[in-house]
Design a protein around this nucleic acid. Sequence first.
DNA 1: TCCTATGTTGTATG
DNA 2: ACATACAACATAGG
Length: 274
Amino acid sequence: MPELAEVEFIRKRWNPGLGHVVTSVRLHPRAGVFKTCDPAELARRLLGARLTSSAAAAKQMLFRLSGADADGTTLWLGLHLGMTGELSTRPAGLPDARAEHLILDQAAAAHSLVFADFRMFGRVQFHAGPDAPAWWADIAPAVISPAFTLTAVTDFFRRRARTPLKAALLMQERFPGIGNWMADEILWRAALHPARRCGDLDPAEIKKLHRETVWVASQALAITGATFEDPPTSWLFQHRWKDGGICPRTKKPLERATIGGRTTCWSPARQKLA
DNA sequence: TCCTATGTTGTATG
DNA sequence: ACATACAACATAGG
């Protein structure tokens, strides 16, 4: 489910835990979710630690804690929601439900912080130490940051000359946080067919795509990232899932097919293969 | 039963 | 070494 803006919103669901100490840790290690960290170490170090801040970048969330050891070692808890991950808080003392993999109780606040993911494509990552771990530090600069330049996109498209636009927009090393619906939204606004090859675009088309990427990400963060509301009906978002959907701009039928390995929706009257 | 699902990664092939 | 394509991961719901 979650892309850039949804991740940013869901990250804030643990805000009630900021400033509070973790008084007990419950892990339900199932295959996958804890693959890149040691659950035993995670449980040991989180116990007694204080949650100090959180952040989101791309589709990754970071929760920083100050450890319970004498020097208060910085703890870096990374959560990725995969396809079906969720964060929530709930009153203390309730039993753990199925698919809840990580539960942090905070007695002083009388609640628990919960990470659940029934499909288990999500990930828990962990690091203890003063410096940001690679899985956080190496995330590409945000598409709404000044580092996301037209030149960077142009260079990327040159190297990925044979890749369909749809597949390229899903590559996190250049378009961090962009997922299936955002990619379709960007291409629809830029009036580019998702199966066009990166190397075939002229400079004006790349510029348009760059501009729409920044616009869609900014608006999604302002709307969904702040309130979790869906974007308005003027967006492709509202029409792309239903059979027989109509393009809000051309009023002609939308089309769907698998492109770049993912279900893709576009407006044939507006996005031409050429 | 079969198909789909807002994601990533490992592997095979070119 | 690099780019590209696709199966695999695991589960629920239509």
